[in-house]
Structure formats: structure tokens, C-alpha cells
């Protein structure tokens, strides 16, 4: 179900915890699975559950509690923009409006070509670099101006 490489990565996470606490690696395992599959389909969740010796519903609880997991398919690039107060004070809402207009979609929507999904996020702990968005949960882009947004979007394949 998951590639050998992903499994190896999960094993490395499992090794961080006491032997009878494999479950501690569930967040990492879901992250790794999501990186490979793009989102967490029920089969993926069941696979992770079996792999770590957990009940599927217990894994599902985790997957639905932390909001960086995608429980539905997303575009090739998921852009999560922080709109919390400190970011809003520094223009996050303007960037949001700009993104929506430019991409022709609202929050929680994906462009028709399946390329970009736009999400609204809560504080990234990076308010000094506001406004900020996160690409695919990994790459953070800060101090966003409209020009900067244009440049970043142009770079996305």
C-alpha cells in the first residue's frame, strides 16, 4: 500500500519511541503517507493502523484532529494562508483576496485544473514574517506582497 521508502521512513520514526509505543509514530506515519499519496484515503488510514497495530478509528481520530492532514483529495499544491490577527494586521486579508481573484477560487476550493487548493490556516508561529502561506505543508513563504505571490505562483509547475 505504501512504498518501501515510505515504510522505511515510518520505521525510522517508530524507532524514536519506546518499543511498546509504536503508536507514538502515528502522526509521522500519517504525514509520510500523505506525502506519498496526496491525501489520507480510508484505505491509507487502515494501512497505517495495521502497520502500527492500532485500531483504525483511533488513527482516524488523529487524522481528523490535526488540521494539516488532508481527508479529501487536494490539488497538486495546497496553499494554506494564515489569516489570524497578527497576519491580518499585516495584510493577510488583502493577499487572500488577491489569491482568490487570481486563482478564481475561494478557500477550501481547488482550481479546475486540479493544480492549486486554497486553504485558510491558523497561526503558523511566524507572525513576524506576515503575511505567510505554506505550500504543501512544507515550504513557508513569508512577507508576501502581490508581486511576491505572482512570482511564487509562476514557479509552481
Amino acid at each position: 500500500m505504501l512504498s518501501a521508502e515510505s515504510k522505511k521512513k515510518i520505521d525510522r520514526e517508530v524507532a524514536k519511541y519506546p518499543a511498546d509505543w509504536k503508536q507514538s509514530a502515528v502522526m509521522a506515519a500519517l504525514r509520510i503517507a500523505q506525502d506519498e499519496k496526496g491525501w489520507l484515503a480510508p484505505e491509507t488510514i487502515e494501512f497505517v493502523a495495521d502497520y502500527l497495530g492500532m485500531e483504525a478509528i483511533a488513527v482516524y481520530e488523529v487524522a481528523t484532529f490535526y488540521n494539516m492532514y488532508n481527508l479529501e483529495p487536494v490539488g497538486k499544491y495546497k496553499l494554506t494562508l494564515c489569516t489570524n490577527l497578527p497576519c491580518a494586521l499585516s495584510g493577510a486579508n488583502d493577499v487572500a483576496a488577491y489569491l482568490k481573484e487570481k486563482l478564481g477560487i475561494g478557500f477550501n476550493e481547488t482550481t479546475p485544473d486540479g493544480k492549486i487548493t486554497l486553504k485558510e490556516g491558523e497561526c503558523f508561529g511566524s507572525c513576524g514574517y506576515a503575511p505567510v502561506f505554506l505550500i504543501n505543508n512544507r515550504k513557508m513563504c513569508g512577507s508576501l506582497t502581490f508581486a511576491e505571490v505572482d512570482r511564487i505562483l509562476a514557479e509552481l509547475e
Binding site: 487502515e46 485500531e55 483504525a56 478509528i57 483511533a58 482516524y60 481520530e61 481528523t64 484532529f65 488540521n67
Partner: peptide, 22 residues
């Protein structure tokens, strides 16, 4: 001894449910 039900989601959106269609 078996977790048939869980509370998925968070906050006000928490819901008691089994896994998918179990």
C-alpha cells in the same frame, strides 16, 4: 477491549463515530 467508536474531529465539530462504515 475494542475501540469501535471514537470521537473524530475537534472542538464543536467533534463527532462520535465508528471508522468509515464499520
Amino acid at each position: 477491549g475494542v475501540m469501535e467508536l471514537g470521537m473524530a474531529g475537534r472542538g464543536e465539530h467533534s463527532e462520535i463515530m465508528p471508522f468509515v462504515s464499520k
